[in-house]
Amino acid sequence: MKTFAPKPADLTHDWYIVDASDMVLGRLASQVADLLRGKNKPTFAPHADSGNYVVVINAAKIALTGDKTDKVLYTHSGRPGGLRRDSYGELLKNNPERIIYTAVKGMLPKNRLSRTQLTRLRVFAGEEHPHTPQKPVPFEVGRISQQAK
Rank of each mutant, 00 (worst) to 15 (best):
L113P: 03
E128P: 11
E128N: 07
V137T: 15
V104M: 07
V56L: 08
D70A: 09
L11C: 01
G81W: 15
V104D: 08
P96G: 02
N40M: 03
L121P: 08
R122S: 10
N58K: 10
F139K: 06
P130W: 05
L118I: 02
D19K: 03
G82Y: 05
V24R: 06
V56F: 13
I144H: 12
K61N: 11
Q134D: 14
P42H: 04
A103I: 10
L118R: 05
Q147P: 10
V141C: 13
R98Q: 14
Y53E: 11
G81R: 09
P46C: 02
A48V: 09
N95V: 09
A33I: 00
K105N: 07
Y88K: 03
P46V: 01
A63L: 13
Q147C: 12
L11V: 03
A48D: 10
L118D: 07
G66H: 11
T69H: 11
S145T: 12
T102M: 13
Q31R: 04
V32S: 03
P6F: 00
V72H: 13
Q134H: 15
G142M: 15
V72S: 02
Y74V: 12
H47W: 10
N52M: 06
A59I: 05
P136T: 00
R84A: 09
G106R: 15
T132I: 07
Q147Y: 07
T102H: 14
N94K: 14
R122P: 01
D49Y: 07
E97W: 12
Q147H: 14
A45F: 14
G142A: 12
R98S: 15
L73T: 13
A20Y: 05
I100A: 05
Q31G: 00
G106M: 01
L25G: 06
R84I: 13
A125T: 01
L28M: 12
R122D: 01
V55R: 08
P42W: 07
Y88G: 01
Q31L: 06
A48M: 14
V24P: 05
Y53W: 15
L36A: 02
G126D: 09
R85P: 06
L118Q: 11
K71C: 10
L35D: 01
D22T: 05
N58P: 09
V54L: 08
D14P: 04
S77F: 04
M107E: 01
A20I: 04
G38P: 02
Y53V: 15
V72Y: 09
L121A: 00
A20K: 07
H13W: 02
P8T: 14
R84M: 13
D67I: 02
R85M: 06
I62W: 11
T3R: 09
G26E: 07
P8D: 04
N52R: 11
P8A: 06
V54K: 14
D86K: 06
Q31E: 06
N95G: 05
F124T: 04
L11Q: 08
T3N: 14
K71G: 06
E97M: 12
